[in-house]
């Protein structure tokens, strides 16, 4: 089947209907969550009791809105903190690693490349428990040997950052390396011929070329970090990021404030995702993901 070839109208209609059904399947749960953020009821369920904004701005107890809910606000704060740290480290390491694999030859390069990809194929839960186990081994050793109690090595935000970084750095590397591969080395050579130092050539020629990939990878890293659950679950301490707070609420049963938070996440992640696609598409070849 091709668009240049004639197709039977029945087959064509059935095909379009299938794609339509597929899109409905995709959209349905999100629409349901969004709509019920405005239901004036104490439960995120039918019956519909009228429109309200209470789940965003409500200030009194049973109807405590998103903006007044301390736990949720703290969760958002923790998530932002973790996401910023994870993104910064991932982009830094992703950039150097992209240069390592695109610009250098060294022994066991293909093995090293496989090791770089490995975090993507290790289940997130296992990345989580391995970091949990190792950091506590180190913390216990420090405690036994020197009597130091290093709180940072116990479950908490630092471990969450490390756990997320372990695989987000791979994603960042792949995105940045894909753009670096298309870079015309002659541009750098020209800079050298014009008397630029390697540092100056990097800052004025290579880095601006990479910028769309860096921004794109940064946005994707932020999004993945903010929404990560599996790895975070194993490493979380007494200061849970948003996904963990939401998970606990979901298990217990919650008011539609959960829908309000979800809608906030949908709008936020939709915007970040769109920007990341646009940034990378703007100057041509790049593609998201």
């Amino acid at each position: 089947m091709l668009r240049t070839l004639p197709r039977s109208p029945v087959v064509d209609a059935a095909y379009k209907a299938y794609v339509g059904l597929f899109l409905i399947y995709l959209a349905l749960p999100l629409i349901v969550v969004a709509v019920f953020a405005f239901n004036d009821s104490l439960f995120p369920a039918l019956p519909w009791r009228g429109f309200t904004l209470d789940w965003f701005v409500g200030t009194t107890d049973p109807k405590l809105g998103l903006l007044q809910d301390r736990n949720i606000l703290r969760g958002i704060g923790n998530s932002v903190l973790v996401a910023i740290a994870t993104t910064a480290v991932s982009i830094l390491v992703g950039t150097t690693t992209a240069f390592l694999f695109e610009r250098h030859d060294f022994p066991f390069k293909s093995f090293a490349y496989l090791m770089m990809l490995a975090p993507l194929v290790i289940p997130g839960v296992i990345l989580g428990i391995s970091i949990l186990a190792f950091s506590s081994t180190v913390a216990n050793a420090l405690d036994d040997r020197f009597g130091w109690e290093v709180a940072a090595l116990r479950p908490g935000l630092l471990l969450v950052v490390l756990g997320q970084f372990s695989f987000i750095a791979t994603i960042a590397t792949l995105v940045i390396a894909a753009r670096l591969r298309k870079f015309d080395r002659a541009l750098e050579e020209a800079a050298f011929d014009l008397g630029a130092t390697p540092a100056a050539a990097f800052l004025t020629v290579t880095l601006p070329y990479l910028a769309p990939a860096l921004i794109g990878a940064g946005l994707v890293a932020f999004l993945i970090s903010f929404e990560n659950f599996n790895t975070t679950l194993m490493l979380v301490g007494s200061d849970p990021p948003l996904t963990i707070t939401m998970f606990d609420r979901m298990k217990q049963g919650s008011t539609p404030v959960l829908n309000a938070v979800s809608l906030f996440l949908m709008v936020g992640s939709g915007l970040i995702g769109l920007i990341s696609v646009m940034v990378q598409r703007d100057r041509g070849e790049g593609r998201a993901g």
């Binding site: 995709l26 959209a27 349905l28 749960p29 999100l30 629409i31 349901v32 969550v33 999004l223 903010f226 929404e227 659950f229 996904t243 939401m246 998970f247 979901m250 959960l258 829908n259 979800s262 996440l265 949908m266 992640s269 939709g270 970040i272 995702g273």
Partner: peptide
């Protein structure tokens, strides 16, 4: 839909 957290999709 996949930019949205898995948590939100499951909640739906």
């Amino acid at each position: 839909p996949f930019w949205v957290s898995e948590l939100v999709r499951v909640f739906g």
